[in-house]
Design a binder for these strands. Structure first.
Lengths: 172, 172
DNA sequence: TATTGTTATACTCTATAACTATA
DNA sequence: TATAGTTATAGAGTATAACAATA
């Protein structure tokens, strides 16, 4: 408690601060908090970028995961997407109403739905993906290509580390 | 659109997937989404770690920012913390009721409150900070010290890049 | 006239439990 | 008996607007 924290590259030249000059204090060395600061900014951009499409970020994520995993069931999508299965119902309803996705009863297990995007859904997803990537383009431009890869790699490894530990002993 | 994405270190050996094997598709190259995957896991851990204290993560963040910025006003704290000023009233109320923080009218501008932690608030914040750091310890253990520093540095630089661009042209 | 803190209100998300049809 | 999807409902979180005190 009395030992000083090691001075990191991230706060050399003084204590780490927000863009408006607020000191981060104990939050400076919290990975989760540092990610959230960045996501607060990116999230606002994504909401604005998706507004013309009339869909929310979570709905787009749902579309992208369906597209990448044809025949995906709602229960699995809910678990992986970090939302409740009941919350997903409204999202899939909305996608069906707009003709972007379809539910078909699974022939293997008739309790579950096989989800798939329609061609219109595929097309819209590609458009929205481009809009979403544009919100992060400044990061790709401001970092070197190698640094961008390093960021992806470190986020991936951190995620796998935590997921593996959770698998042994869930947090909830 | 027809150009294949460059194969990155983060998804070498095949498409990037969640811990449960779901393909990420277009989300694989989204910095915001990759951070959110990790935060979904960390967030559940932090909520569990804070439950014994009877406080939520946002309340702890508020305490930490007050501690690092003595005399902070509610309006500035709300702006920086990414929440509405009206939402902050309930949080500060709760901190005052539990004797963890105090409001004093600013002598410079009597419209604004100067926020400060009480000694009890300082002590609890230190305890909660240790509990929060413990939720991320496996990442610090699983990555090398240099990699941890690189992760902090890249998150910091990405944040500053986006914040600087937002300052020129806000997204909302 | 603009800003800080507050209150009230409405809206959205989320969490929980129950219900059905299948297994 | 357990699971996938659905529905209903209640609680928490968030956003908006209005107000009093102060600048």
């Amino acid at each position: 408690m009395s030992k000083p924290l090691p001075r990191s590259a991230a706060d050399k030249g003084g204590e780490a601060r927000t863009a408006d000059g607020l000191a981060l204090g104990l939050m400076a060395r919290r990975i989760g908090f540092r990610m959230r600061l960045l996501q607060n900014l990116l999230g606002a951009r994504v909401v604005a970028a998706f507004a013309p499409f009339g869909l929310r970020p979570g709905t787009f994520t749902t579309m992208a995961l369906i597209a990448a995993n044809p025949g995906l069931s709602q229960i699995r999508l809910a678990r992986e997407g970090g939302l409740d299965k009941s919350a997903l119902v409204a999202i899939v309803d909305q996608l069906e109403e707009r003709g972007l996705a379809v539910r078909t009863r699974s022939v293997i297990d008739r309790r579950s739905n096989s989800l798939a995007l329609t061609p219109a859904g595929e097309a819209l997803m590609q458009e929205m993906s481009a809009a979403a990537q544009a919100t992060e383009q400044c990061i790709r431009d401001g970092l070197s290509p190698a640094e961008v890869e390093t960021l992806f790699e470190l986020l991936e490894r951190a995620y796998q580390i935590v997921a593996r530990e959770d698998a042994r002993e869930p947090p909830g």
